[in-house]
């Protein structure tokens, strides 16, 4: 007796796209996202993320290749494939003159939900996304964050099995971003597969279990987040110390870079332990006030995988110097 595996949430094979002006956006993308996954698709501007999403959602015509959603081909069984997908695009694309509730209810109607069913679902998701009080407000008067949440509610009204979010937290303040993360994690826990593209690499690292990095129309990495980050050969820690340090400061077994008299950067290889660093610092009778990563680990990996990282650095990807832990020795 043979048991067949459930189909992938998304299976893309040999996807190519050449635009009418000759620009080759996708050069043969292969991508598989398992059901229930929280998946990150990362890449710099123009790498092919939005084109890939556009093809999946029927907004961009592919040149060649196959795409199937939960086993439904977008070519042969487009209605079933589309019913499985909810999409939150990068740009606001709802009727700016329509009321919030009408936008969500109308979208339900496009998926065959009666007005009564749509109203029930719309209330559910507008409440969950804290927009119910704004249901009779004309959408153009909403704040940027509210507009983003409106697009999420609209994408969820037909309760898709696969939710695709194209930079959903772009331009959203940190507090709201965190609350959206919590919401998306709940949606994922309820069984919805989520594919996320983002410029905030911290977001991908926090939310996603698996990741693909696309650059110049090709997938350059595709694995679990843990495996990808494990490939990092070293991390750079920034230490603020109480005592004054000479500019030729060194630590045995560690590469140090003197930043100023109270700050050094220390490179730690994968094989080394942070404890060893603290032991070395203690031996020198140095007290560390704070410790932080020089950059987001995923960002380090991301940049290392790009074919032309200089083109994208600083322009698109703000460096994160978030504090990992306050440590005293």
């Amino acid at each position: 007796m043979s048991t067949s595996l459930p189909p992938s949430a998304l299976a893309i094979t040999g996807l190519k796209k050449t635009y009418s002006d000759g620009f080759v956006a996708l050069k043969g993308v292969d991508l598989h996202v398992e059901s229930g996954d929280f998946f990150a698709l990362l890449g710099p501007n123009g790498a092919g993320k939005s084109t890939t999403i556009g093809v999946i959602c029927s907004l961009v015509s592919k040149t060649s290749g196959t795409v199937s959603v939960f086993g439904h081909s977008i070519d042969d069984d487009f209605a079933a494939a589309k019913r499985c997908i909810g999409v939150v695009p990068q740009e606001f694309n709802f009727n700016q003159f329509e009321k919030v509730l009408n936008i969500v209810v109308t979208q339900g109607g496009y998926y065959g939900l009666t007005r009564k069913e749509s109203l029930v679902r719309a209330e559910k998701y507008l409440r969950l996304l804290d927009l119910w009080d704004k249901r009779d407000v004309v959408s153009r008067t909403l704040s940027g964050g509210m507009k983003r949440r409106l697009m999420i509610a609209r994408a969820l009204v037909h309760e898709p099995r696969l939710l695709i979010l194209d930079e959903p937290t772009a331009g959203v303040d940190i507090e709201l971003r965190r609350s959206m993360w919590d919401f998306l994690q709940q949606v994922n826990k309820s069984g919805t597969t989520i594919i996320l593209t983002t410029h905030y690499l911290e977001e991908a690292e926090s939310l996603c279990r698996n990741i693909a990095i696309i650059d110049e129309g090709s997938i350059v990495a595709n694995s679990s987040m843990k495996n990808l980050l494990d490939k990092l050969s070293q991390e750079v820690l920034v230490l603020d110390v109480v005592e004054s340090l000479p500019n030729d400061f060194t630590l045995e077994n560690f590469r140090c870079h003197w930043v100023d008299e109270h700050c050094i950067e220390v490179s730690i290889d994968r094989e080394q332990h942070v404890n060893t660093l603290f032991t070395a610092l203690e031996a020198r009778q140095l007290n560390v006030k704070s410790l932080r990563n020089k950059a987001n680990r995923l960002e380090e990996m991301f940049v290392s995988l790009l074919k032309n990282p200089a083109k994208h650095l600083d322009a698109d990807y703000p460096r994160y110097n978030f504090v990992s832990d306050e440590v005293s020795v």
Binding site: L59, A80, K82, I85
Partner: peptide, 9 residues
């Protein structure tokens, strides 16, 4: 917002 229709079945 034509995309609302194009992504739907």
């Amino acid at each position: 917002n034509i995309e609302e229709l194009l992504v739907a079945p």
